[in-house]
């Protein structure tokens, strides 16, 4: 089965209203998802919709399965021996958990950013060139254009355009993280999964990356795991709150950002977002 329909452009919503950015139109529908390490469930009964063009933040204390959840969405769990995933994830109406899904093509459409910036120990240019080549972009001029565009999109072009051939590891932490985002963007994904993209950065770099994330809204669908409640509140349209119950991670509450922060329905959520717990 191939998943390769092009997606339409989105309309940006008003940031100030903290409301949905557009008419909610789910791109990912997660139903009864559970993740097991061996025989132990680490995550169970997760059902939520990720809406097109919006930023969805996942909050909650560490160790409650947020990262595991994120890596089921691009099937990175395939690479972890002993991990079992159950349930359904519909991507454009197809279950992406089916065996027959081309996972390499899937990961081109669903990119991922990690907590620690992980640019390859190669040159800046090659970091972006490599994934393009791997996905069959043969024309060198086209690749060059795409690389330039991606670097401009993350605001890195002016900083590195004169040293594209130096090592990516010579960049600062914040620059490295933006390079990783550019590396994901160069493949023109529809969804970007971000696993605490700012938590390993200093406050200033963290601010820059956060602004970048906000600029990406509308063009891409973003799912962000974060520990930083203020950040979630600043950037997100939708928020999901995870918590451990009986040593299994559960999705306690999911809703629009303002509603979840200002009028949570669950007592636990209320305690967590007000800082009383967690």
């Amino acid at each position: 089965m191939m998943i390769d329909q092009p997606t339409a452009a989105y309309t940006l919503g008003e940031m100030e209203q903290k409301a949905a950015c557009c008419v909610p139109s789910p791109i990912l529908q997660v139903r009864d998802l559970a993740v097991y390490y061996g025989n132990n469930a680490v995550l169970a009964d997760v059902s939520l919709d990720i809406h097109k063009g919006c930023i969805t933040a996942l909050i909650g204390p560490s160790g409650c399965g947020k990262t595991s959840f994120l890596s089921t969405l691009n099937r990175l769990t395939d690479y972890h021996p002993g991990v079992q995933v159950r349930g359904q994830i519909l991507f454009d109406g197809h279950n992406l958990r089916q065996e027959s899904v081309d996972t390499l093509a899937l990961r081109r459409r669903i990119g991922m950013i990690f907590q620690r910036p992980n640019p390859f120990p190669l040159s800046i240019r090659r970091n972006l060139d490599l994934p393009l080549k791997e996905h069959g972009v043969r024309d060198p001029h086209l690749r060059k254009r795409k690389i330039k565009q991606a670097l401009k999109d993350v605001g890195l072009w002016d900083e590195v355009c004169d040293r594209l051939d130096s090592s990516a590891l010579s960049l600062s932490g914040g620059q490295q993280q933006r390079l990783c985002i550019a590396r994901a963007l160069v493949l023109e994904p529809e969804i970007l999964l971000m696993d605490e993209p700012c938590s390993a950065l200093d406050p200033i770099s963290s601010r820059v990356v956060e602004e970048l994330i906000m600029r990406l809204r509308g063009r891409y669908t973003l799912v962000i795991v974060t520990h930083n409640l203020a950040q979630a509140r600043r950037v997100a349209n939708y928020v999901g709150f995870f918590w451990m119950r009986e040593r299994v991670g559960k999705l306690i509450e999911f809703g629009q950002c303002r509603q979840l922060f200002e009028a949570p329905t669950d007592a636990l959520t209320a305690a967590y977002v007000s800082g009383a717990q967690g």
């Binding site: 991922m112 990690f114 990783c180």
Partner: peptide, 27 residues
């Protein structure tokens, strides 16, 4: 070689073989 790079390569939809050739061996 740090697992971060393996994860990064896989998340970009690169094959294991490509990750080995282009990232892990040089590292």
């Amino acid at each position: 070689v740090s697992d971060d790079w393996r994860q990064g390569a896989w998340a970009l939809g690169m094959t294991r073989a490509a990750a080995v050739c282009h990232v892990l061996l040089p590292a």
